[in-house]
Simulated scan of single mutants.
Amino acid sequence: IMDTSNASSGDHFTLLGFSDQPQLEPIISVTVLLFYIMTLLNNTAIILVSFLDSRLHTPMYFFLSNLSFLDICYTTSIVPQMLINLWGPNKLITYVGCILQFFFAFDFGATECLLLAVMAYDRYAAVCQPLHYTVIMNPQICKKMVAASWLTGLCGALSMCSFAFTLSLCSHVVDNFFCEMPAFLKIACEYTKVVEVTIYTLGIIYLLLPLFFILISYGTITQAVTNIKSGRGWKKVLNTCGSHLTVVSLFYGSAIYMYLQPKKGSTYQVDKFLTLFYTIITPSLNPLIYTLRNKDVKGALKWLFIKIQSSGSSHGGTVG
């Protein structure tokens, strides 16, 4: 049984994680490490090819490289501390570390919600306004959209973090593997109406409104697609939008369940594994989802691999 006596100290929190199922911890730690390595490698590859290959200097890949950077930041704010706790004898995190983890997880998560909405608008412009696409999605507008997503996410994280850490806490034992808002608020002494309204307001702003915008964008796209008679046109639209819709479904489905469910209706074990899915597994899958059906990215990745391989061979030849 894990000793949580130190958890009462005001300068530390205890992250229980999966300590109630110790037999699963080695399996979870190996799985998390593998998915984290996949996240770093796959998303870094997307960023590199989007930057180096001039054929990918388009709004879609500009947004995709930002999404990849977000996923790297998001998982890095969680996984290192999680692995330390899984491998170590205690499950502690400092008070400052908990604040930072709470802040960055909310910031990157909220920014991703907004960025996915921006990407939906890009797909709408590409399908429904093809003749004006380059004007609508010019580089300056794309940069402003991404900057607005980052700034809005930052504002939400600052307001939520300052609010959450002013609450009186009945415990310093967080029943999750990182300092996330739903788990953190469960240790607040009073779950008042103010807390509930604040949570649901932020949920509406950062989850439901972007999702509503995405659904409107894809509703308009669907309407436009019904007018396409050729099978080739349908296939092109599916390739253009299918990947983004898959990512949206994975991310929003789990996030809405976690953040907008009633407090009393939640189950700790379900919450933990669902949190594990959308914080660790989904970011590693996003690059694969976007590249599996995308000839441009697959071609660019192949070009990058050949370039690295030839560079290594030439250096080896020089040394020899």
Rank of each mutant, 00 (worst) to 15 (best):
T192G: 06
L114R: 00
A45F: 04
I289N: 07
I78E: 06
T58Q: 08
G316T: 08
K91C: 05
D20A: 09
I93P: 02
Y218C: 01
T111H: 02
L92V: 10
S249R: 09
I281V: 15
I78D: 04
T76D: 08
I1D: 04
L202G: 09
S8D: 10
P262R: 11
I46R: 01
Q23R: 12
L260T: 05
H172C: 07
G265A: 12
S5A: 08
Y259N: 10
M145R: 02
S9T: 09
N294R: 01
F277H: 03
T282I: 15
N138R: 13
N42C: 14
S266Q: 14
G97R: 02
M119I: 11
L15W: 04
S266M: 09
I256L: 03
I99M: 12
P80E: 12
L185Q: 11
V127N: 09
V194F: 11
H172N: 15
P59Q: 07
T246A: 03
V247N: 04
V174E: 02
Y252K: 03
T31I: 14
L185I: 10
L52E: 07
V194T: 10
V174A: 02
T14H: 12
F177D: 00
A164N: 03
A255F: 07
V248E: 10
G203E: 03
M181P: 04
V135T: 14
G153I: 01
L41Y: 14
K236L: 14
T246P: 06
D71C: 15
L41R: 12
F212L: 07
L70T: 01
E196Q: 08
K91E: 06
L83G: 10
S77N: 14
D271W: 05
W150A: 00
K91T: 09
E190H: 15
I141G: 01
K229V: 14
T222N: 07
E180C: 01
G156H: 13
A125G: 03
K186I: 02
